[in-house]
Design a protein around this nucleic acid. Structure first.
Lengths: 213, 213
DNA sequence: CGCGAATGTGACCGGGTGGTCATAGTGACT
DNA sequence: AGTCACTATGACCACCCGGTCACATTCGCG
């Protein structure tokens, strides 16, 4: 947990530190990210960072948490129940579109999301991704369950498993089109960002149509 | 590329080095993996490693390549065209089962596969995953295309996109059941390895049924 | 202003890193 | 036995890391 000092901080200074941290951790992940670099880029002494946070992990965890909260806040308006006459596929597809569009417009958030999902240390990974996954599961689950209850999804649908799969898939769909280095060997990422985004959306449509009643 | 010395090496010594490297890189990834640790665990001087490989990256790339070749070799017998009267879903589902079972039995290969997929540095990632993805795309593509040609998959199927998705998904399906720390917040990974394996298989069935003609 | 609390700072610490190299083995062939 | 190409070794190097701490600076308040 961030120290009290962090909350008392001048907003501009806090923003500079957070931005520098998102950029550095987003590029090199938790263990690879350098506090020296973050301090330098933020225009702040390294010692200051330890006034704000207990240690590197506390710092990273806060950066990851804030990032996921921002992203989730952007998604929340679209997590409502589907409008009248709106099919499940339209509703959920729109959600995927919003997600991809948000990541396209926010490279810092996108990079931190990637770094979080690519973390290899089990303890760090669990501590950082756990809350995020719970957040998303809580947001998306009602949509799936609602579609099952309304007879739009097959009654035999394994909601939990489908949920896991979608939460697992979302980062890939959002990241792939904009980080060409990540998976350029796969055709999904072969062309321009725009085309790839459309392809990602089409893919979700195709796959989800399998569970539609 | 490994130096000549590596190939001339006594097989037992080569095995010890490779095993130690798989364990270390599998646990901590490329940048986090320590050559000191690998040398110590292999019972070999650190200097020797630099007689075998140009540098750390060359070493890691070789470990990743050998691992993927082993895994692919285990899968190859199952990449044939489906038998008479065998549906696409049976055929492909069997492939997923083999994949998961192999990973269950080979923790070293599994860990290296995970580390490779979780690598964050774009250059390393591209260099290491590119060949692997090409290998798998080449193996799996004919199966999908064959199913489309035979009318088993919808003729509107985006084979390339579906291929990308499956290659992206496979590591997750294989890893999740056995690395509880990775994604314990998701229901897919909530219970025993056996149950989770069955669930992963069921999930693939459900999703793929969407593209079946 | 003056004082005390809170915050900022960067030199410094122990330790680990990838990589080098002079030296010492090793073994095959004359 | 002598020679020579090849291989093994670990002390050593420069560098960077996360984290600390004694001290300087700033701020809020009487």
């Amino acid at each position: 947990m961030p120290r009290l000092t962090w909350h008392n901080l001048d907003a501009e200074r806090r923003r500079r530190v957070l931005d520098a941290a998102m950029a550095e951790f987003g590029r090199h992940g938790y263990s690879g990210g350098s506090l020296n670099v973050i301090a330098r880029e933020a225009g702040v002494a390294k010692g200051s960072l330890f006034q704000y946070f207990d240690d590197k992990f506390d710092f990273f965890a806060h950066v990851a948490e804030q990032t996921s909260l921002r992203v989730y806040a952007a998604m929340e308006p679209y997590l409502q129940a589907p409008g009248d006459g709106e099919t499940f596929l339209d509703h959920f597809g729109g959600l995927v579109d919003v997600w991809i569009a948000y990541m396209a417009d926010h490279p810092l958030e996108r990079a931190v999301t990637a770094a979080t999902n690519l973390e290899i240390d089990p303890e760090v990974r669990q501590a950082v991704r756990g809350p995020v996954h719970r957040l998303y599961a809580q947001g998306v689950r009602p949509i799936l369950q609602g579609a099952v209850d309304a007879g739009e999804l097959s009654p035999t649908t394994d909601v939990d498993a489908l949920l896991s799969l979608l939460v697992l898939l979302l980062p890939h769909l959002a990241l792939a089109p904009f980080e060409p280095g990540l998976d350029s060997a796969l055709p999904l990422y072969g062309t321009s960002g725009r085309i790839r985004s459309e392809r990602a959306r089409r893919l979700v449509d195709t796959l989800l149509s399998g569970v539609i009643a």
